[in-house]
Design a protein around this nucleic acid. Sequence first.
DNA 1: GGGGGATTACGTACACCGTACGTCCACTTC
DNA 2: GAAGTGGACGTACGGTGTACGTAATCCCCC
Lengths: 215, 215
Amino acid sequence: MPTEPLSRARIVAAAIDLIEREGADAVSMRRIAAELGVGAMSLYNHVPNKDALLSGVAEAVLSEIEFTDDPDADWTDRVRAQARAFRQIAHGYPRCTMLVVSRQLRSNAGLLPVERALATLRSAGFDGVDAVRVLRMFIAFIVGSLLREVGVTPAFAPARHPMVSPEDVDPALFPEVSALAPLLGSCDHEVDFEFGVELLIQAIAALQQRKEGTR
Amino acid sequence: MPTEPLSRARIVAAAIDLIEREGADAVSMRRIAAELGVGAMSLYNHVPNKDALLSGVAEAVLSEIEFTDDPDADWTDRVRAQARAFRQIAHGYPRCTMLVVSRQLRSNAGLLPVERALATLRSAGFDGVDAVRVLRMFIAFIVGSLLREVGVTPAFAPARHPMVSPEDVDPALFPEVSALAPLLGSCDHEVDFEFGVELLIQAIAALQQRKEGTR
DNA sequence: GGGGGATTACGTACACCGTACGTCCACTTC
DNA sequence: GAAGTGGACGTACGGTGTACGTAATCCCCC
């Protein structure tokens, strides 16, 4: 039985699998090695250290983004599609999301989405400065949104998100929170995300029109 | 020499100090105890476990937000002030920021900013649903922005942020990134943040006007 | 002042972590 | 066959969080 030889790719895949099954805290070199039926130290023949392995995980997850970018479509539709693509991978790998957003990647996998987004914004008529600004704005929104979405339910557990329950907040200290507790407690991440994307797109379109007016 | 008795507050303070001096990785129960001139296990008389200690750190940092909310001011100014207050604490405790945003708090310290923000938005005329939506949008933006700001320079180190350097990106694969590398490489977090806040405020104002139009 | 009970600090012990280092086996290439 | 090479392995070291048992200290009540 030849048993597929160890490789960086197999190790990263095992790590992703383990994280999604048992959470990021369960990741250890020994644990991953055991998962692969191999000694802990064998991993170091393919990966310099644990940190690099985690970077590999982030990169692998990020590189699974599927862009179906249609250069002929309206730029607003392209932006929508790209934003949703990000959210998609957060859903595919919820427990890896924190890893992806918490370590900035300088690799090709990290640069591709940036390239796509900049191309879209440039095609919409923004100059370099504005394109970068708008992109940063969008990334901040997306990262923040996804962090909340996966943070509130570390395992995407079934509905376990009371978050704010009406009974344990003092109405005298927090009248607004208390009054809006039902709204704060439940939230549909999907519609929240879409709301944010639309708001941003409209704001950007308005920005563009102001610029054109002064041109 | 009576030596101030150990307490949860002193332990949390020592942890914050240690994190800011040497980074979050340096935090261990033994290390904090040593910092306080005490045995490791003594900490457990005041803190149930390490995770709770870190939550205490997040809460303490968050509770240092200074709101100087003027209920008579324009709601846009109040929103601006609150957004900046968040950024302020990220600057005061850069290496704790990741901790604060990565663990959602259900405590009073975490609820106070929410209360203030909701009150502001309600006073601006938003109904409950919209106030919550807009608040979530703002939080996502702020969290994402601060994460980038502290992530790019883990120690707020002096200027060590090439981030994207023109020479190591292939212009054939990434024409836009390559062309805009100078812009992507350097960034003034202050103006980026302000740009984002203004964009959001304008978007929200526009949203408000649309609602009023249909009323 | 003198007990006594509770609270707190301490030390030891255990299981687990990342990884430096040396060994050994299986393979490829002459 | 011999030589060389690379990958898998085992051991070992220093560090981690914390369960548990013990000893010292403080405070209150008599």
